[in-house]
Design a protein around this nucleic acid. Sequence first.
DNA 1: GCCGTTTTCGGCCCGACTGTTTTCAGTCG
Length: 584
Amino acid sequence: MPEITRDTLADTLDEIALLLELKGENPFKIRAYRNGAEVVRSFDGDIVARAIDDNLKGIKGIGDALQDKLHELASTGSLEFLENLKGAFPPGLFELFEIQGLGPKKIKVLHEKLDVGSIADLKEVCESGRVAELSGFGKKTAEKILAAIENRSKFAGRFVLAKVAESAEAIRSVLRDHPAVSRVEVAGSYRRAKETVHDLDFLVASSDPSELTAFFTRLEGVTEIIARGDTKASIRLENGLQCDLRAVSAAEFPFALMYFTGSKEHNVALRQVALQQGLTLNEYHLAPVDGSERPDPTPDIHEERDIYRELGLAYVEPELRENRGELEAADAGELPRLVDQDNLRGTFHCHTTESDGSSTLEEMADAAGELGLAYLGIADHSKSSFQARGLDEDRLAAQIAAIATLNKRDAGIRVFAGSEVDILKDGDLDFDDDLLAQLDYCVASVHLPLGQDEKTMTRRVIRAMENPHVTMLGHMTGRLLLRRDAYPITHDKIIDCAAATNTIIELNCSSMRMDMDWRWWRRARDKGVKCSINPDAHHVRQLQSLHFGVRIARKGWLRREDIINCLPLPEVIQWLETPKGQRS
DNA sequence: GCCGTTTTCGGCCCGACTGTTTTCAGTCG
């Protein structure tokens, strides 16, 4: 029986939703499955164990039917209902959902009328002209589908946050300078600091919306105009990134900003809150529902903050708007005061030319000083990472001495001598304890081998964390965004072990990692686990990624006091000098 | 399929754009 995880359960419900869409089922039933998937994903507790025990009663959004299905799946490893559904469609049909402009209805028609079962089939029937003859389709639809197939293969369709920031800020700046624009914001998942984004959503308040959509389509670097109307336009940039613009009036701006910031789930939940109060909320206004005697609150609303206030809620920072409990916390006045960019006092886990970095120790120290940091932790690779020119005992001893010398010059920055020590395949560390004890701190990370099963990997990492010299756990899952999946590891157990052993978990904010994932930080924080926001910089430029690390930490509900590198220098020194078991 | 101090039945968030239509369905966010 395959291992059943939280993700298996959630993904299965999403898969059912997709299949029901293809069948043309009741849209509300489909929504119930999608909603169920989200409930499973964000459930605070061991949902798999409860599903196995058939103990899911009372969880909002999981009714009798979903309870039975989750129980069957968790306890037997398969689900007859799903297998029956799947049997009705060729497996290649599902990739059609990745084609822009195709949804369940059109895919259903393509499958039933033209026997399309894959993207290759789709391409063929578009080119042969048979798609254009279908009722509800046409020549333009066929052309658009072909273009979308091209696009899909050219660009995977998602981009990591740090990589789109330059485009986002450049376009924001150009829009701000337009004379007919009074306010501009980049909304969407970029504003919510998702680790990857699909597109950029620009919002402007303008006296001349249609001029703005036209202006937007003429921006430098536009390679394709996907759509252009009076208030809305979509373009594609040279790197494949899609950018959308919405132009609204100044009065509508706060509503539109909230709406287009999302997430969709947050918005839906917020609308429910409004409806309960006799108000209807959309991207243009907050108004009494028809027949309500409640006075119109709109005139007093100029900022998003005012909308939340009008609904009796504390302001919810954009990073938190994922419908993962933020509205309940806002209602109860229990939202955290999130860490700010200027709270960072230093950082750990940076490399130098001694291993696989491309900036020297001095260059890294100077660059960190220029960023205003008071301390910098160096952690070059250990000897087993031979591919990264990992340091052996002698070279590490020499580096410790070099750092001591560097600290004697008054450069305004304290450098800590550390090591990114490999966690070997059985959980042993790459250096013995005597050497580790000479370091200011130690990051323990898994590099090779990566192919172990979840139990073995979890045990391996836990053994390393139990070492009294391991200060923090590096890039917990080894994922590379859009390139390599996380290796399997039981997050709950690692978090519990971190809490029990006073081991910090790193938020590795290298733009391709953002690891540990933000979805786990709130739970870790609640158990008293500390975070270190580390850039894993291999070049002075990469220290900049600390900015995105803070954004992700905010997304994980982290406060200044949860983050070790928000401590001022004297306190962090004292903390590092205290034996691990006595730190708090 | 889920939910309920109005309801165990009848609701379930909603608007813009496109392409195909001649009043609207599908998709997207």
